[in-house]
Design a protein around this nucleic acid. Structure first.
Lengths: 231, 231
DNA sequence: AAATATATATGATAATTGTCACCTTTTCGA
DNA sequence: TCGAAAAGGTGACAATTATCATATATATTT
């Protein structure tokens, strides 16, 4: 086993709560973790499933979604490199309220819940760090609630593109690095796929977005931002 | 000072994270806390305000809301007896993302943040308890997102009444104990006040709700539930 | 009790968004 | 590489919801 496979040496750790763990604790985690490769479109866990641990994203992006009673998926969060999925369910000792599906090819570490829970009870710094991250998630969730209920679909789609650029960046040609299908974007903003496609087409016609194959790029960020703010 | 004014003896404590505090810690909290009386309609804190502590609700109900760019208030959560407000901001060391306004007359205890943060760092049981409650809030926020984006206004209003009955109960005559204005209900479900009034009128005509003065009561819970589920 | 403000109510209308039908393009497996 | 399946796209229309105007009822103040 190469040393790059050890949590102690994992750079990803710098971005999540594991950075508050002691050398000893990290060693324990590393010894009991398993690494998984997940292909685009595959499920990591399903809504209602009992999670026996958490998943640390080493590479790729996962969509965390919840099925509504009308049969549509609502994407609640996108989890990226460095983020830990499943913490909420493990801490609350509940089955998962969300499903996780890979948006692109992923590499994950699975960490058994016993280690997480034990460390939470023994290491207050770790607990505080997890708390801080969960506080952040909660704030983001509040923002999503306000956006969905008070902004129009057009505003939310504009905002989604700004979010994708800000969080995942764009390539040398100005195309967004994270490519989501129209259906996924619709499920993020909470609208019908057709409505989403229509508005993206409109944005392209107006010169706000460009596309090449499946890739989409932002041409006019200023106008997009004004749109999102409601002007 | 009467002993009923001491956190150690406060029954409310049983319902929140403070139950995980030691005798010593509680004594500290009690010595530094201040009690406040807030009248209906008054603000406890505002969005953007820096909070120097948390508020423990001893009596009454507060609405936690966020102003959207279009000028409307979205109520994100109702905080009741036993709940602690402002934890998120104190933990994340950020200004509050929400405003808190009293829905009815309230009694609160204000606990300085230093004590909370210190205890979080020293007492893992307390940290874990806060974590558990925040995990629960996060799940509820996810549910709200899905409901708002996937259900119709009518479904959400039906759901709101079921929620009010389940969480606050009804009096001897079958009227809901927590009376919210139509505007508040509209701000909970994320719709225009007029739309909310219209749908409540419709529910009354259909015999699902009854009203007497400002009070509203549920007459046909079964149909209301079916409506909320989308039948 | 009168005057004023606030909350509730309702109609008319416009704007937004969803649904269904159908078509084209792209992707991917056999 | 062919053909099926999936994704993207668009029109027509229906349903939902917001907005504006205005009326009435209820609460609050003086």
């Amino acid at each position: 086993m190469g040393s790059d496979n050890r949590c102690e040496n994992c750079i990803i750790r710098q971005f999540n709560s594991l950075r508050a763990m002691s050398k000893e604790e990290l060693k324990q985690v590393s010894d009991s973790k398993t690494t998984k490769t997940i292909k685009k479109g595959e499920a990591i866990f399903e809504e209602g499933e009992k999670l026996n641990g958490v998943f640390c994203v080493r590479d790729g992006v996962s969509k965390l979604s919840k099925l509504s009673s009308n049969g549509k998926d609502q994407i609640v969060k996108l989890a990226t490199k460095g983020e830990v999925m499943g913490q909420r369910s493990v801490i609350a000792e509940e089955t998962s309220n969300l499903s996780a599906v890979a948006v692109n090819d992923m590499e994950l570490c699975f960490i058994p819940k016993e280690i997480i829970v034990n460390t939470l009870h023994k290491n207050p710094d770790f607990a505080f760090e997890v708390l801080r991250l969960m506080a952040h998630d909660l704030k983001e969730a509040d923002d999503v609630i306000v956006n969905i209920s008070q902004k129009t679909v057009k505003q939310r789609i504009a905002e989604a593109f700004l979010y994708l650029k800000a969080n995942y960046g764009e390539d040398a040609d100005g195309y967004l690095i994270l490519t989501l299908s129209r259906e996924d974007i619709a499920n993020v903003v909470g609208t019908a796929t057709e409505s989403c496609i229509r508005i993206i087409s409109e944005f392209k016609k107006k010169g706000l977005l460009k596309s090449s194959g499946k890739k989409l790029g932002i041409l006019d960020e200023k106008t997009l931002r004004e749109l999102a703010e409601g002007f």
